[in-house]
């Protein structure tokens, strides 16, 4: 009889078991299904063309920038419902500061001031959540209304309108704007920003000590605190990050359109959460993936843009999004249970 070095109860780990540990597994499956569906239904009416691809990539990029930051915050166990209103505030702020008739600051300076303000709002969100101990859902819901309302109020006070336009000349002259409006290898800047932000945040989550703290803070804040994780700092930093992501998105939109609208970004907070959830983030925190959130954003964009190429009425988009969310969450939940059972 030979001596076994391994416990006989241990079965070798299969590739499938390894894959089950990836939170984004469900979203990859969803992406394949959704893409295949539109390729079949709308493949010959332009969905598969380069223009069609560019279309949904750009939509995915805008949502994905937001969703990657929102995903990190969700993994840390918090929500930010004010992130949509923050887009509007940042857009108007940037436009007013740079507008020749109002602030007339250089674009880069206007951008820095806007970013600073957004970071301040993010800090305030985090501070209020951690200080009051109220659920972030409620605190940021309040912030959502406050920001949206104040945005309309101030903008009308200053401009008598709800739109700030006429920035096109300034944008055309400023080389900084090219960072947000230019193209590289046939893809718009937004897509590159998306890829960069996703890569950077995924790197932080999976490869740095701070990433481990994010998982810890969301998994069990008390337990994490007891072993020395600075939970407060982690969460406040991530609230500031979502505000910064909203500012980046607002900048890309303002630079692209040459104008800002007070209603800009409304509803984006829920789309970002949807993308993060489809990508495998757990609503209760402690689990999820930035790359998954990116895939979630891509899925939503494909549905939104793909539907244009089909004969289906656009009004049905939201129905499909709702179905996607339900299906994705059910699938993710099932896969996660499987990953916990599989080795017992």
């Amino acid at each position: 009889m030979t001596v076994k070095a391994q416990d006989e109860r241990l079965r070798p780990i299969t590739l499938w078991q390894r894959l089950l540990l990836r939170p984004e597994l469900g979203s990859v499956a969803g992406l394949v299904v959704v893409f295949a569906f539109f390729a079949m239904v709308a493949g010959d009416s332009g969905f598969l063309s380069w223009a069609g691809t560019r279309n949904y990539l750009e939509v995915a990029a805008q949502l994905g920038i937001l969703a990657s930051a929102v995903a990190l915050l969700m993994i840390a166990g918090e929500f930010d419902l004010s992130v949509g209103s923050m887009i509007g505030v940042a857009a108007i702020g940037l436009a007013l500061l740079a507008h020749p008739s109002y602030g007339d600051l250089p674009l880069s300076l206007a951008l820095l001031i806007t970013l600073g303000f957004a970071l301040g709002i993010g800090y305030l969100n985090g501070f209020l959540v951690l200080r009051t101990g109220l659920p972030s859902f409620i605190v940021t819901l309040a912030m959502m209304f406050i920001l949206a309302g104040a945005n309309i109020g101030f903008t009308k006070l200053i401009t008598k309108l709800t739109i700030v336009s006429g920035l096109n000349d300034k944008i055309a002259q400023d080389p900084v704007a090219r960072l947000f409006t230019g193209e590289l290898l046939g893809l718009p800047a937004a897509v590159w920003w998306w890829l960069g932000v996703t890569a950077a945040l995924s790197f932080v989550l999976l490869r740095t000590p701070f990433g481990n703290w994010i998982f810890g803070a969301g998994g069990d804040a008390n337990a994490a605190r007891n072993v020395g994780v600075p939970v407060r700092r982690v969460k406040i930093t991530l609230f500031m990050l979502t505000a910064a992501a909203a500012t980046l998105l607002a900048t890309i939109q303002v630079m692209g359109l040459g104008s800002a609208n007070v209603l800009q970004g409304q509803g984006k907070e829920l789309e970002a959460i949807a993308a993060a959830v489809i990508g495998g983030c757990l609503l209760t925190g402690g689990y999820g993936s930035v790359v998954g959130a990116g895939i979630g954003a891509l899925i939503l964009a494909i549905v939104q843009q793909g539907i244009i190429y089909t004969n289906i009425d656009l009004d049905w988009f939201k129905v499909m999004v709702g179905g996607m969310i339900l299906g994705a969450v059910a699938l993710n939940n099932y896969l996660r249970r499987l990953s916990l059972q599989v080795r017992r």
Binding site: W213, G216, A224, V227, G286
Partner: peptide, 17 residues
């Protein structure tokens, strides 16, 4: 003070990475 969804090694080093 362990997080069930987190890997063993990450749990082991949580807070002292």
């Amino acid at each position: 003070a362990m997080l069930p969804l987190m890997s063993i090694s990450r749990n082991f080093f949580l807070g002292r990475e």
